[in-house]
Simulated assay, not measured.
Amino acid sequence: MKNVSRTFIASAILGSSLLAAPAFAEQKIAIVDVQGIFQALPQAAEISAAIQAEFKTQIEEVQQLQKDGQFYAERLQRDAATMNEAEKKEIQDKILDVRRQLSEKAQPLEQNIQRRSQEEQNKLLALISQSIDAVSEKENYDIVLNAGAAVFVKDNHDISKQVLEQLNK
Rank of each mutant, 00 (worst) to 15 (best):
A10G: 07
F8P: 05
N168C: 04
Q130P: 09
Q66L: 12
I31V: 13
Y72F: 02
L14M: 06
F152G: 09
E26K: 15
G148N: 03
M83D: 06
A149Y: 10
F24V: 12
A21M: 04
F71A: 11
A50W: 07
Q58D: 06
F152C: 14
I91D: 01
E104D: 12
Q111A: 15
I95L: 07
L127W: 15
Q58P: 08
L41Y: 00
Q35M: 08
A80H: 05
E87Y: 11
Q118I: 02
Q39Y: 11
K88T: 02
S5N: 12
E165Q: 09
E74F: 11
A147Q: 12
G36H: 06
D79V: 00
A73F: 07
E85W: 12
A30W: 08
A150T: 10
A106N: 07
K94E: 05
M1G: 11
F8N: 09
V62E: 10
Q58K: 08
L127Y: 15
E119F: 02
D33Y: 03
L167N: 08
N156G: 02
D79P: 10
Q107F: 14
L14P: 01
E87G: 12
R75Q: 14
E87N: 09
V4Q: 08
T57H: 07
Q121G: 01
K154D: 11
A44C: 01
I29K: 02
F24G: 08
L18Q: 03
M83Q: 08
T57L: 15
P108D: 14
K89W: 07
N140Q: 15
L164W: 00
R116P: 13
K161N: 12
V32T: 06
A30I: 01
S11L: 13
I51V: 03
R75P: 09
K94Y: 06
L125F: 01
Q111I: 13
I113Y: 00
A44K: 04
S117F: 10
